[in-house]
């Protein structure tokens, strides 16, 4: 296997002075340990040959470097991110940036299921499409998708913002507690308790800023805002007095 498959290509947006780490020959634990060490000393890292392996770039802390993965990554890339900036030059597997608290992850490609699962803060930008259950259980932060999001995206989200500029699959925003979904393009269907509401000035201002920062174009089709109606927040109110006492 050529040690530097990914290094021989040029990667747009990856500065020439990035310090390179070759993922080949390292298991996930060794890789992450090396990456953490390098991230302490260098601001700019490029990972050669990620080869869609799982668990790359886990638990990076605040102030860590900007890390470029030169190729696709597997499951849970950027999981528990606590402040690093990560760019994936390829696609990402399940659970990208799960439980992330801060920082930014940009995928120049598409993501599989459950990107941003349970995230509490920070931003995920996906320039392609995002799979089902994107933003599931998210509790804060932003997920910005240039393409579509798959079915059940935003499922049981607590807070945060999910933006899909190319449409959404079925059961969008099912059983959300709070939080906002903005979608342009066709929506296959809304999920339980999801309701469309009008965008207000604050929404528009935020979206303009978010998309500009992410380098994503304003959509040609109109944006719709999806929120929880709140019907699932309580058991039937009329029996609350009774069920308190049984």
């Amino acid at each position: 296997m050529n040690r530097s498959d990914s290094a021989v290509r040029t990667w747009p947006g990856v500065p020439a002075d990035a310090v390179h780490l070759d993922a080949d020959g390292l298991d996930a634990r060794e890789f992450n340990r090396k990456l953490q060490e390098l991230a302490q000393v260098h601001d700019l890292l490029a990972v050669d040959n990620p080869r869609a392996r799982h668990n790359l770039g886990i638990g990076l802390e605040t102030g860590a470097a900007h890390i470029h993965f030169l190729g696709s990554v597997g499951y849970y890339c950027g999981g528990f991110n606590a402040g690093a900036e990560i760019t994936v030059h390829g696609n990402a597997g399940w659970g990208l940036g799960e439980a992330m608290a801060a920082g930014q992850i940009t995928v120049r490609g598409s993501t599989a299921w459950s990107a941003g699962a349970g995230m509490r803060g920070g931003t995920i930008v996906i320039t392609g499409d995002a799979g089902p259950r994107t933003g599931i259980a998210m509790k804060g932060g932003n997920i910005l998708v240039a393409g579509t999001v798959g079915f059940m995206s935003g499922f049981m989200a607590h807070q945060g913002k999910l933006v899909a500029l190319g449409g959404a699959g079925d059961a969008l925003g099912a059983s959300m507690y709070e939080g906002r979904i903005f979608v342009a393009g066709p929506v296959a269907g809304l999920g339980a308790d999801a309701i469309e509401r009008d965008l207000d000035g604050v929404d528009l201002e935020e979206l303009r800023r978010d998309l500009a920062q992410a380098g994503l174009a304003w959509p040609a089709q109109p944006l719709h805002k999806i929120e929880a109606e709140g019907r699932l927040w309580y058991f039937d109110k009329h029996d609350a007095r009774i069920w308190r006492n049984i």
Binding site: A28, R29, N32, R33, H54, N55, I58, G59, G74, Y75, Y76, G79, F80, W94, G95, E98, W113, S114, A117, G118, R133, I136, A137, F155
Partner: peptide, 23 residues
């Protein structure tokens, strides 16, 4: 769970937890 369903992805998940906590 939002990001694993079976034994194989759970194995990857548990390894992620080990990495995040430095074992």
């Amino acid at each position: 769970h939002p990001d694993f369903l079976g034994a194989d992805d759970m194995e990857v998940k548990l390894e992620e937890l080990r990495i995040a906590t430095d074992n």
